[in-house]
Design a binder for these strands. Structure first.
Length: 556
RNA sequence: GGCGAUGUAGCUCAGCGGUUAGAGCGAACGCUUCAUAAGCGUUAGGUCACAGGUUCAAAUCCCGUCAUCGCCA
């Protein structure tokens, strides 16, 4: 019985280009997970989109003299293109500045209102007289009343760590232009998050398979008691509010961005011409949903979004919130303040996709922050992908091609070594599946590489290149087993290295597509004509490490 | 300031109460030559962040300290 698996990927905030840190922790694991489940025969909807709204984009637009929509659209297109090139298999990748999304947000808003979870309250906020806008905490600074530091922000002083309110600042001024704001009252709509305290606590208590940081962070929030949160902002860029006298305010980005998971699923249903499709992911109690994102937005997915869903009623809560730590840019010359990073569009211009997918997965920050280094990338490509995996495939195919006219040979009787090897193939299929089901992506990848190593050992021991001269049948058996190892590798690596595995599929002369084979060990049939063997991965020169590091040191 | 996660071989990590602490990569040495000078084997390398404690027994549990990252205030 196929399962319904909703794969939700955090919505990137599009006011800059994507870099490797963005995709390592969420897009990669989500895509591997989605691809695995599709192969396993489950119904998958992998959804996300660009988060278009919010203050940073609005301000950047003012500074560049264009509309916020232009900025957001420009970056949305860049992100979309990169995701496509990376092979991220979204069923729907949309953005938040659409009539459809707005409709879904308003539906949620109205239901929450009906159910009594919204209320109004007013607060006093700094208002810029030069820009005619309210300034959020982060956009005012002044002298800290506690330590006298002059660069204290509206929410806290970086010098002494004291928490502040904008009203506490001495000589408060706009961070934008230095002008002095005045305090004005402003009314906002709040979400009564505190109402869900008990319900959320009970729900989280059942989630004993969540990663420790996700679970503990969430429990900590609940222990401290939930606060009601303002879900509107004084800003013109965003989703309009379905309420009178809120013409100059918009829905708070975080409130509406998480709703994107639902609106994107509904959009997918619409696009596929199956209007009720979304229900099988959101209303079927047996459906599962997995949310992939970085550690910084755990509470939005374990508290706020579930709270919204509880208030709306009738929609599934997250099965798991898979939060990864951060991927940092390693040692050589990295300077965060100068904005140096490995930008995805740059990478894609110069190198292949699968080696990056491989390396990022192998260092995925599952339990702690990890570091991307070009030396590590080079080593992973040359020593693991090329030498162990790619070369195994190539050597078997080449020997077969040369001695058996590129046709899968007929095996003779299998001996213990042959049977052990085939059993190892079955184990690799189940091990990888178990790792991915448990959302242990590095483990899953290792299971695949371990099979390639076993294959190399097996072939070394059997020496088909020698036996073919005296005992052609023995060589035939070995190569048949070898080709079956390749067929298995093609499956277990498919979620990680989709385009390489598609190539292998062709080189093995297998019918149909990888998708049709599913998550099972496909046996190669004697007599099948093989495709032309070609190297799967290209070896990179050591010099790229210095070249790339030099790029990082250069500012901008 | 509070909370959480992380700290184990040169690197990336596994182990999370019980024999001499493991894997992959890297290194050294040897074997091999079908293959993208690829493969295989052997060896070296660790006071398990630091300091206490509980236990017959701790990398593993408890307490404290330090470091890194994140969140909250």
């Amino acid at each position: 019985m196929p399962r319904n698996i909703l794969v939700c990927v955090a919505w990137p905030y599009v006011n800059n280009a994507p870099h490797l840190g963005h995709i390592a922790g969420m897009n990669m694991p989500a895509d591997i997970f989605a691809r695995y489940h599709r192969l396993a025969g489950n119904n998958v909807a992998m959804v996300s989109g660009s988060d278009m709204h919010g203050t940073p984009t609005a301000l950047k637009a003012i500074d560049e003299g264009v509309t916020p929509e232009e900025i957001a659209t420009r970056y949305h297109e860049i992100w979309s293109r990169c995701f496509e090139q990376m092979g991220f298999s979204y069923d729907c990748y949309t953005h938040t500045h659409t009539a459809h999304h707005q409709e879904v947000v308003h539906d949620i808003w109205n239901k929450l209102d009906e159910h009594g979870y919204l209320f109004e309250a007013s607060q006093s906020m700094p208002y810029s007289l030069t820009e005619n806008r309210f300034l959020s905490d982060r956009f005012v600074e002044g002298t800290c009343p506690n330590c006298g530091f002059d660069g204290a922000r509206g929410d806290q002083c970086d010098k002494c760590g004291r928490t502040l309110d904008p009203a506490d600042l001495i000589n408060i001024r706009s961070k934008r232009d230095g002008s002095t704001p005045e305090f004005r009252d402003t009314t906002h709509v709040y979400l009564k998050l505190s109402a869900f305290q008990e319900q959320l606590s009970e729900w989280v208590a059942t989630k004993d398979d969540w990663r420790p940081n996700v679970r503990n962070n969430t429990l900590n929030y609940l222990r401290e008691g939930l606060h009601d949160r303002a879900i509107t902002r004084d800003i013109e860029w965003g989703i309009p509010i379905p309420r009178d006298s809120y013409e100059h305010k918009r829905v708070y980005v975080w409130f509406e961005a998480v709703i994107g998971y639902l609106s994107a699923t509904k959009l997918l249903a619409k696009e596929r011409g199956e209007p009720d499709l979304w229900k099988s992911f959101w209303e079927d109690p047996a459906a599962e949903s997995y949310y992939f994102q970085g550690k910084d937005n755990i509470p939005f997915h374990t508290i706020i979004w579930p709270g919204i869903l509880m208030g709306y009623r009738g929609l599934n809560l997250p099965t798991d919130v898979v939060a990864n730590e951060y991927l940092n840019l390693g040692a050589t010359g990295f300077s965060k303040s100068r904005g140096n990073a490995v930008w995805l569009p740059d990478y894609l211009e110069r190198y292949d996709v699968d080696p990056l997918r491989y390396y990022l997965t192998s260092i995925m920050p599952e339990t702690s922050d990890s570091e991307f280094t070009w030396a590590g990338y080079l080593a992973a490509n040359n020593n693991e992908l090329v030498a162990t995996f790619g070369n195994f495939v190539h050597r078997i195919l080449t020997i077969t091609n040369r001695n058996f006219d590129g046709v899968v040979p007929e095996p003779g009787d299998l001996d213990d070594a042959d049977r052990t090897m085939l059993a190892a193939c079955d184990t690799a299929i189940t091990d990888t599946a178990a790792a991915l089901e448990a959302r242990h992506f590095r483990d899953g990848l290792r299971a695949g590489m371990s099979l390639a190593q076993q294959g190399n050992r097996y072939v070394d021991q059997k020496q088909p290149w020698a036996t073919v001269k005296q005992d052609k049948q023995a060589a035939a058996t070995t190569l048949w087993v070898g080709l079956n190892i390749i067929a298995t590798l093609k499956t277990v690596f498919a979620p990680f290295l989709p385009s390489s595995c598609e190539k292998i599929h062709g080189m093995l002369g297998l019918p149909g597509t990888i998708a049709e084979d599913g998550w099972s060990r496909v046996e190669v049939k004697p007599g099948t004509k093989l495709g032309t063997p070609e190297p799967l991965f290209r070896k990179l020169d050591d010099s790229i490490v210095d070249e790339e590091n030099a790029r990082l040191v250069r500012p901008g």
